[in-house]
Write a protein that binds this DNA or RNA. Structure first.
Lengths: 112, 112
DNA sequence: CGGTATCCTTAGGGATACTG
DNA sequence: CAGTATCCCTAAGGATACCG
């Protein structure tokens, strides 16, 4: 992702948001923050995404070094994804955002 | 914006992010967090957006009750936009996101 | 199982001109 | 000044089938 002069000058938050925006990225991060997942697990936990799009989102998160990918040798193939340090440091901020949503956005309720 | 069952169940943060996602919304919030702005001011501060899109983004922020719009009578017309309480409470979270970007994202530097 | 390859659809955004 | 009205176009996402 290229950042324009204007983005960088005005609003580093925008640059951050760009890295986690995308229809499924926050949900992926949410699930990975509970621990590593193999591709198929993650895919089962997030229904309604096509495999292709799921992969795209993961690749973008990798490119932003928010998520890391591990290939375990053997058959059948096993690949796991987990949050990087950078990704983990994002988690508390997302939790605050979550809290903000819970207090301000109608119809958003916590499901422990 | 409708939220799916899945969004609400899994990730209130996603719902929050939806309200501030959009190509220009973070930048608009950034500028408004420094105080109210009339439309033309804001538009001058954010070059490269078309007036139409700028309006759309503002309308969406209004719909999410992040931004409020005040019409001052007189001629020429004067309309100002400012952050609502909800919007102001978002500011510190965005600042943390900003800090996170500054420490983790290459090429993002602070311009006091 | 994890991943490509194809093809298709749409919403988001951009350019420009016009109006009260 | 603030706001519509048109028209256009591309990137993001979706469906489906196939591969090692």
């Amino acid at each position: 992702m290229r950042h324009t002069y204007h983005d960088i000058e005005c609003c580093a938050a925008k640059v951050a948001l760009d890295q986690i925006s995308g229809k499924w990225k926050p949900i992926i991060i949410f699930h990975l923050s509970a621990g590593p997942r193999r591709f198929s697990e993650l895919w089962r936990e997030i229904p309604r995404v096509s495999k292709k799009v799921m992969l795209e989102q993961l690749r973008q998160l990798e490119a932003a070094t928010l998520v890391e990918r591990t290939v375990h040798n053997g058959f059948p193939p096993e690949v796991t994804y987990h949050l990087s340090g950078k990704g983990q440091q994002l988690a508390p901020i997302l939790q605050q955002l979550e809290q903000w949503a819970l207090t301000h956005i109608e119809g958003v309720v916590q499901i422990s």
